[in-house]
Design a protein around this nucleic acid. Sequence first.
DNA 1: TGCCGATCAATCAC
DNA 2: AGTGATTGATCGGC
Length: 256
Amino acid sequence: MQKIKRHHEPVNHKASKKLKLVTDEEKEEDAEDETHFHEFDNPVPWQKIEAEGLDCDYALLFSKEEADILFSKLEEEVVYVTGEEAQVQVFGKVYNIPRKQATYGDAGLTYTYSGVKRLACPWTPTLEHIREVVTKNTGQTFNFVLVNRYKDGLDHMGEHRDDEKELDPLCPIASVSLGAARDFIFRHRDSRGKHSHQNFEPVKLELAHGSLLLMNSPTNKFWYHSLPIRKKVTLPRINLTFRRIVMSGKKEHQIN
DNA sequence: TGCCGATCAATCAC
DNA sequence: AGTGATTGATCGGC
């Protein structure tokens, strides 16, 4: 297993200056005598967000300094789709999506967005680095990331659920936010529309620079989420949603 | 003003 | 093959 090089400040500022990534086995060995190792190894403090059928965990994963660097690196590395790939059809009409999108992941993986299949680009160094940090902090592995870039508060995403068939239903979706903080709204599926038969209050969060939101099962079965327009926001935000895609049985891309 | 919820009535996946 | 779900723009109410 490859070691992760930490080239930014650690989350825990009380941690030793000697930043050495230790494997789980090494932790076991050192655990008894070295107190400062415990400080360094402390997991990020998670905040639980719960409602009926909704189960999320929120944490500040990166310091401002780390997050600033990650943001600018992503601005250099990520290539967003253009043209027809950046359009979506709603009720028969074609629109440009009100944000920029890109898909990265393990070789050969595809992702279906609004009926259109899209091939994952190979991981960039920064995306791979963030994936490793997320894995280290969640214990979950991901093989794909959807990148959404919102250039200002007018860029947005409408209400939807991430319930694509190709997603591993038990794996959480890990959403990393970088750049401008944006409001994020959950609404229960049975509390939408004029004749909704239940009355769950929306769950509203602000996703901060450097934060990680884990959306655990079965959140996406019952709750829609959206990133609404915020006219006061003038700065860009990049959002990374790490997912686990299972190519169940389906023969991938038959080449004739 | 800005925000929020409802509507649209075409197309597609299952 | 009929049904249900859809994603974004627009509009009305507050």
